[in-house]
C-alpha cells in the first residue's frame, strides 16, 4: 500500500488562477458589448487582435525563456492583458499600434520582469502608455463617433479595412474627439452650456460612453460579488476623483463636471478592471485604499491640468511605482498585536 504523503491542508477549493481570469474576461463582456453597440466593431476587432497577439507573444517569449508554454498559457493572464488593451485602445487604432502595445505589455512589462506575478507595472497600461506617447496622433484621432442608432455605425468590413490597411473608407467620417477631450479643449474659450451642445455629449452625459461605463461598473460589481476583487481599490479610485472634483472642479465653466469624470473615458474600466490587477497593486486593505485613491486623484489632476484628455494609464503606472512603499507601511494589525508593524525590520519597526 503506497499511501500519499502530503503536508496539510489536504483540502483545496477549486478556483484556480485560470478560472479567476476567465471570470474577469466574462465580467468585461457587458462593457465590450456596450462599446460595440455604441461605437461599432472597432473594439471587438481590437480585442480579438490583441488577445491573439498576446497569446502568440506570451507563447513565444515563454519558449525563449525555457518555460512550459502550455502550462502558463492556460492561466489566461495573457488573454486578460490582451483584452484590457483591446477595450482601452481607440476603435480605429491601426493594427501595428495595437501590436506594439501588446508586445510591450507582454514581452517587456510582464515577461522581461520575470513573468506572471513578477511584474511591478500593470502590463496593459505599460503598452497603452507607450503607444500613447509614441503615436499620439494615432491614439487620439481614431475614436469612433457614438452612433445614435444601431444601424448607423460603420460596417464590419470598413472597420477591419481601416484598422488593418489604413485605407480611407467611409469610416473616416466617423471619428470624433472623445467627450473628455472635447470638453477640455473647448472649455477654455466657451461656456459649459456651449460646449455641451456638441454631439459627443448626447442628451445625458456623454453619448454612449455613459452606458459603456455603466456596463463596466456592472461587470465590476460582479467581480466583487464573486470575491475576485475587493471593493477597496474601485471605491477609493472613484472616491478620489469625486473628492477632487468637488474640491477643485465645481465650476463647470472651468472644469469638466463630476458626472463626466465618472461616466466618460476609461473611468469604470480603470477602476474595476485595470487598477485592480493584483500583481501590481497594493496588497493590504489599507494599502489598497491609498493606492486606489492615489490613482483617482492623479486621474483628476492629469485630466484637469495635464496635457492628456484621459489619464488612467499614467495614473495606474505612477501608483505602481508607489506600491512597494505603500505595502511596507500598511500591513494589517495582526491578531494579538497592539498595532501593525510598519516599515522594514530593524527600522521604525515597533
Amino acid at each position: 500500500m503506497a499511501l500519499v504523503q502530503q503536508s496539510s491542508p489536504h483540502a483545496h477549493n477549486a478556483r484556480p488562477t485560470s478560472r479567476v481570469m476567465l471570470w474577469v474576461i466574462l465580467a468585461a463582456l457587458p462593457g465590450l458589448m456596450a462599446q460595440t453597440f455604441f461605437f461599432g466593431w472597432g473594439n471587438l476587432i481590437n480585442v480579438t487582435w490583441c488577445i491573439a497577439l498576446a497569446l502568440v507573444s506570451e507563447g513565444a517569449i515563454l519558449k525563449l525563456r525555457g518555460k512550459p508554454v502550455a502550462f502558463f498559457l492556460r492561466d489566461n493572464t495573457a488573454a486578460v492583458t490582451g483584452l484590457l488593451l483591446g477595450l482601452s485602445l481607440p476603435q480605429f487604432t491601426p493594427w501595428w499600434v495595437s501590436a506594439m502595445a501588446v508586445f510591450s505589455a507582454i514581452v517587456v512589462a510582464k515577461q522581461l520582469y520575470g513573468g506572471l506575478g513578477a511584474n511591478p507595472f500593470n502590463p496593459a497600461m505599460v503598452g497603452y502608455a507607450l503607444a500613447l506617447i509614441s503615436f499620439p496622433v494615432a491614439m487620439t484621432t481614431n475614436w469612433a463617433e457614438a452612433a445614435t442608432l444601431w444601424g448607423d455605425i460603420p460596417g464590419f468590413g470598413d472597420t477591419l479595412a481601416k484598422i488593418f490597411t489604413g485605407s480611407q473608407t467611409a469610416v473616416d467620417g466617423w471619428t470624433m474627439a472623445t467627450p473628455l477631450d472635447e470638453y477640455k479643449h473647448k472649455i477654455a474659450s466657451h461656456t459649459s452650456t456651449e460646449v455641451l451642445t456638441h454631439p459627443t455629449f448626447g442628451n445625458l452625459i456623454a453619448l454612449g460612453w455613459e452606458w459603456v461605463n455603466l456596463a463596466f461598473l456592472t461587470g465590476g460589481i460582479l467581480l466583487i460579488a464573486l470575491r475576485i476583487i475587493t471593493w477597496h481599490i474601485p471605491v477609493a479610485f472613484l472616491g478620489g476623483i469625486t473628492v477632487m472634483s468637488l474640491a477643485f472642479g465645481s465650476n463647470p465653466d472651468q472644469y469638466a463636471p463630476l458626472q463626466l469624470h465618472l461616466l466618460a473615458g476609461g473611468t469604470m474600466l480603470g477602476a474595476f478592471f485595470i487598477a485592480t490587477d493584483p500583481v501590481s497593486a497594493a496588497s493590504s486593505h489599507q494599502g489598497k485604499l491609498i493606492y486606489g485613491a492615489g490613482i483617482g486623484i492623479l486621474v483628476y489632476l492629469i485630466r484637469s491640468w495635464g496635457n492628456y484628455p484621459d489619464a488612467v494609464a499614467f495614473s495606474v503606472l505612477l501608483m505602481n511605482f508607489a506600491v512597494p512603499f505603500i505595502d511596507h507601511y500598511t500591513p494589517p494589525r495582526t491578531y494579538g498585536h497592539h498595532k501593525a508593524r510598519r516599515g522594514l525590520p530593524g527600522r521604525n519597526g515597533g
Partner: peptide
C-alpha cells in the same frame, strides 16, 4: 485529490482575505 502544480503567486490577496490572524 493531489493539488495541481504550483503556479506563481499573482498577489491576488485571497490568502489575506482568508487569514484568521490578519497576516499577509
Amino acid at each position: 485529490p493531489a493539488p495541481p502544480p504550483e503556479q506563481p503567486c499573482i498577489r491576488c490577496g485571497q490568502c489575506a482575505e482568508a487569514c484568521p490572524m490578519d497576516l499577509l
